[in-house]
Design a protein around this nucleic acid. Sequence first.
DNA 1: CGGAATGAAAG
DNA 2: CTTTCATTCCG
Length: 538
Amino acid sequence: MLTLQEHDPILNDVDDDDGMPPLVDNPNPSMTFTFFTDMTPITAFSSDPTIPFETVWDSPIPPEPPVETAEPLELQPAYNGGPERTSHNKKRDASYIPRPPNAFILFRSSFIKSQQVPEKVEGNHSTLSKIIGKYWKTLPREEREVWEAKAVVAQAEHRRRYPDWRFRPGANAHAKLKVKDGPANTRKRTSHAGRKGRAEAGVNKKNEDARCTIIVDLLTEGKTGVDLEDAVRKWEDSKGDTITDLNKAQVVEERKGDGDEALAVPKKEGVICEEFTSRNNGDQHSNSSHPRSQTPDAVDNRFKIPLTAMFRRSLSAPASHAPIESQSPSPTNACHGLLGSAFVSISYEAFEPQFSSSCNSSPYNVTDGQGHQQYDTTHAMFGEPIGDLSPLVLPSTLGEGAPARWNDPYNLLKTSTGAHLPPPVCTLRSPLEQPSAFYGLADLDETNVSAASPDEMQCSRPYNILMKDWSDPCMSPYTQSPIFNQFEGGHTLYDWCSGGDGEAMFVTMATPMEYATSELGGVELVRLHGGYSAAVKY
DNA sequence: CGGAATGAAAG
DNA sequence: CTTTCATTCCG
């Protein structure tokens, strides 16, 4: 007996490589840090809740079930991928906690639910997986990132709801008991039962693949529902008339092969995956600002970096053997060498904050209540270009790989009707202005800066945020935490810190950022720099 | 450290 | 069974 469940909290104490259960562990929300003396207090903007981007950012979390589950959950159970809901739970008791869905799973679920591919066209879920998998690869990066963002939110909800849960592969694999026999079940999952009908199976498979490819092509053309059904039928008819199935399959294969660059099919834009809610969209959206991935199989390197890596506390945090105090006391470059390998050579010298008392009109005025100087952060930010090496600027160096329209990231500015929301509240004029994709988690409520003076500021640590888009392929992913404060009634993005495990904490740089928040199903979305961050409210 | 294995949805 | 992705397992 004793089937170990993945969420068995007992096991949480053991088998921790880095001493920190990723994802699961309830990141200590009240960790305190000491800031460098030269930290630049930057006041950004208070939130503007009027911006309704919740209209486009649907919660990846399924709606609540009718209250009846008497779950020992005082918290609002926003994530409902949990026990006793899916029909897939088969042999699992009600207490089983499923894994949080990843971006693809969310996409797949939504895709299927939307009935884009009618049952009549394809009802087999294995085949559907193939189709959706192919289709997924053709999605424009922006669209995929929407789903990745949803996955981040779903994961956060999952973590909030099941703080002690840990993924334990095989812990509850019932069929595991017979491993003794031998390497029998060592076979790869993908291996098929090779038999006599090899050739025939091969043909069938080719046909099925061809059909999948056709369907995917049609989908990218914008065909869904009945249109898709008709088109598929038409294709099937024509293929039956002209050439043999096998030949057709080969044709398709070739086409797929040489179409390496531009899938041979005119790709429709963004319309399709927008939650799959707008099935009407007759198309006419020939806007190509979000091109699909041109090489579906040559995935953008940035996708290789798991978004959820942001939950790893040690990602950018050097070991605790690097006491800040032992570093250079120079206030202007105190962070040199502490920023992790990716940034060792970056100089922030020019970024020294300038004190000024003549910036009365600056929105960045900050009084510390003790008559200390005010930081003219405007000057600090714009006076001396700090160069493109700033983490927040990196996207601008990405050149061609960068999305065409940074200010409309990932279709999130679109309303459900396709109309665009107004641009960010304010525009910053600096190299830092270059928006990026900010998906991450921040705990706005827990943050509490209590500083008598900038010299000794304490701040609780929000959850890490991964500045995804400046994780250049050549650089390791890097986590940062936004430091929020509350000035004058509104949230203020105070600074960014990176790393930090309670013993070491590094301020990278002060960044004047504006942000607006909006709430959606208990999830607070934070817009930064025109990019987005999903912040979970606790 | 890196590849293998697991499992998330779904019927 | 089948997909991609995140995470853990294991040599």
